[in-house]
Design a protein around this nucleic acid. Structure first.
Lengths: 220, 220
DNA sequence: GATGTTTCTGAAAATTTGTTCACCTGTCAA
DNA sequence: TTGACAGGTGAACAAATTTTCAGAAACATC
């Protein structure tokens, strides 16, 4: 693939950052302002170049409408033992994002996310279906879900969705986010900890579901 | 939070789907066409309603520019369950990427990645450090690593790096990628399966390390 | 120095898009 | 019955945005 010029790369990065932060694409004029071009056509030309080089797809006539190629960069290192990385097609992209904080999987705990947010990185892979962009990541604190194989220090990915009986949900109780299994029984709703040593929880009347825990990640 | 009407919900869903599939927002006229409204103002009113109800944020004057709240309003049994997603700062991005295929964690198995590559999605989060871009994802097949809590169907993220004694590595043997623990003992290198029922493996002389398994992911 | 390519300027045209105004229709509760 | 309100039509307007056109400046290449 033809290489990008410095400015083209910068513009591409800016567009990426813009859409990641604000959730919508910048207009040509936004880019013009950012790079202090005197003419919109300067941007226009760069966008054409980016499209010709295959990293960007414009939607003709539509405002703030693009499709963008995922980041690509390859360079492999040598190791003592022979090292052979994956082929280009196997490259996975990572992106730095906001990390929502910690979740109490045990008894109610303070939520780290109340203050400053840190950033984390997660690879791009998990299931073939499209994952909703409203998902977020939480670090698990506590051990109330160990019977579901979710342990202290793990990271769970919370996605929006209809909570069903048996789902593991991130629930907000008294301002605390907790991880529990949702049990619907006899018209009542319970939050159940997955730990034999914990008492059965009482039914809850009002409940804020932040989302469904769909993926668990563990650092080795 | 005020409840959404059926049409409002449908429009919100359509917008979500549109941005998820095409990566840019629909215009008011796109929505109009989708729902066969005779007037753009019908859409306009609904968008105003959605904004007033707090699930959508419009950017005044900007085309195809919105911020959207996570999915809304679940109800289960007769208990009130409010849905409240994370704040804007907690949103995590996902990206579609290549998926390297399957890895044999048991006895040598064929590698699915030999042929076509499929795409997967993974959230963005895992550790505070920056992850090298040469990483890739593999689906685990087999059960030889169950004692290390890596099971059939899990996804492991392989990163490049110096393989040390005790690391779990993705190793290429006879054209097959396998997942094993690397043991250095008395100047020799062994690949050890983490399963009491499996025999200790023989030492290997030549070995291609594809990378180190640093993260395990599991779908719930 | 000549030459071609990339990058940019400046202005204007064409189109898309959000927004407003006036008015109609049914529903539901006071 | 009346009034409020959600939901809709139809047309027009104003703004935002993309796109085009002609040409200048910078810059490497021969």
């Amino acid at each position: 693939m033809e290489a990008l010029t410095k400015k083209q790369q910068a513009i591409l990065d800016y567009m990426r950052q813009h859409v990641a932060e604000l959730s919508y694409w910048p207009s040509i004029r936004d880019i013009q302002a950012k790079f202090r071009f005197a003419s919109t056509n300067a941007v226009f030309g760069h966008l054409q170049a980016l499209e010709r080089k295959g990293v960007l797809q414009r939607i003709p006539g539509a405002a703030r409408a693009y499709k963008i190629a995922p980041e690509v960069s390859v360079d492999l290192a040598e190791t003592v033992i022979r090292y052979e990385g994956p082929s280009d097609e196997q490259i996975v992209n990572f992106e730095e994002v906001k990390f929502a904080g910690a979740i109490a999987a045990g008894l109610p705990d303070y939520t780290e996310s109340s203050g400053v947010l840190s950033t984390m990185q997660v690879p791009i892979a998990a299931g073939s279906r499209r994952r909703p962009p409203e998902s977020f990541a939480l670090r698990v604190r506590g051990d109330s879900m160990i019977d579901a194989d979710i342990n202290d220090g793990d990271t769970v990915i919370i996605e929006p969705g209809q909570p069903k009986h048996g789902d593991i949900v991130a629930a907000l109780i008294d301002g605390e986010t907790t991880l529990k299994r949702l049990i619907k029984q006899g018209g009542k709703v319970f939050l159940k900890a997955e730990n034999k040593n914990y008492p059965e929880l009482r039914p809850v009347n009002e409940l804020v579901i932040q989302g469904l825990a769909k993926t668990v990640m563990r650092r080795i």
